[in-house]
Amino acid sequence: MDSKNIVWHDASVDRKERNNKNGHESFVLWFTGLSGSGKSTLANAVSRKLFEENKQTYVLDGDNVRHGLNKDLGFSPEARTENIRRIGEVAKLFVDSGQIVSTAFISPYREDRQQVRDLLQENEFIEIHVDCSLSTCEERDPKGLYKKARTGEIPSFTGVSSPYEAPENPEIVVNTEENSIEAAVDIIVKKLEDKGLV
């Protein structure tokens, strides 16, 4: 695409004004982990807790986004990369709007997650590794996807026939085998408080 005739248009209300009015910083909570690890459940629980504390929050969920914005994408490595690129750009807009946006995506590749981090400023990208063993995720299998992957119905399924590259230095790690959702939420919110973000 030839973008030389496209110019960024500054908004009349800037992010700093929105953050001041909201009474908190805006940033991305990037939940990454295997299918069944609890990303969506945890992202929504954190969002609910912050919302009840009068914070502006929103959750971008992997399945929900693939119903609309990314419904044209498959699950090849290239399509997964484009899926995450688009989400990163949308998340950046949410940050600019003054919100705390939680994203719940497997996002299996470190390079893709790094590209999203690079779109944002320091302390705007909080990577949360939702750590859970493959065996436990398979036991949970809330959508029946592992069963289909094991029988070959779903090719290129993360953790089975496609790799998952766990974060090397995430800001937060929560183990959903060892912690309840409530305990995991408390861990995350405490970390955000310690960072002075909420």
Rank of each mutant, 00 (worst) to 15 (best):
E53V: 01
S40N: 04
R113I: 09
Q99V: 09
K16C: 07
G36I: 08
L60I: 12
S107C: 10
V13T: 15
L42I: 01
D61F: 02
G74C: 11
L60S: 04
E17K: 15
T57W: 01
A43K: 15
N54E: 12
E89M: 13
R66Q: 01
K71Q: 13
A79Q: 15
L69V: 15
N70Q: 00
I87L: 06
R15Y: 02
E78M: 06
A45T: 05
E78V: 01
E127A: 05
D96C: 06
V59I: 01
R15F: 01
E124G: 11
N54P: 03
R15Q: 12
Y109G: 08
G62I: 10
G62C: 10
T57A: 01
I106F: 07
R80H: 10
N70C: 07
R85T: 04
N123Y: 11
A104M: 03
S37E: 05
R117Q: 09
I126T: 13
V65D: 11
G36H: 08
I128R: 06
S47Y: 08
V116N: 04
E122Y: 12
V13K: 12
G88N: 08
E52M: 11
T32N: 09
K21L: 14
N70M: 01
G74W: 10
S97W: 09
L34A: 08
P108F: 03
L60Q: 02
G38C: 00
G23V: 00
A79Y: 05
K16Y: 07
T57C: 07
G38N: 01
L42Y: 01
A91P: 05
R66T: 00
F94T: 02
V101P: 00
V130H: 06
I128S: 03
R113Q: 09
N64A: 06
E82K: 12
W30Q: 12
D63L: 02
Y109A: 08
R80P: 05
L120Y: 07
R113L: 08
F27E: 03
K49F: 11
N19A: 12
E124A: 08
S26G: 15
V28C: 06
A79N: 14
L42R: 02
R110H: 13
F105W: 00
P108S: 09
G88A: 07
Y109I: 14
E89W: 12
Q56V: 06
F125Q: 12
G62A: 10
E78F: 01
K39S: 05
F94S: 02
A79C: 11
K21I: 10
V13S: 11
I87H: 03
N44D: 10
R85E: 04
S37W: 03
S40C: 04
L42A: 01
R18N: 08
G23C: 00
S76L: 05
D61W: 05
R15K: 13
I106K: 09
E124P: 12
L29D: 03
A91S: 13
F75M: 04
Q56C: 05
I126Q: 12
G88E: 03
N123S: 15
S26P: 12
H24C: 00
D96R: 14
L73C: 04
R18G: 06
G68Y: 04
V65Q: 09
S97G: 13
R117Y: 03
K16I: 12
L73G: 03
L73H: 08
S107L: 10
S26K: 09
L34I: 03
V95F: 10
L69Q: 14
G68I: 03
A45Y: 08
S102A: 15
F105I: 02
Y58Q: 13
S97D: 13
R66I: 00
R117I: 01
G74D: 09
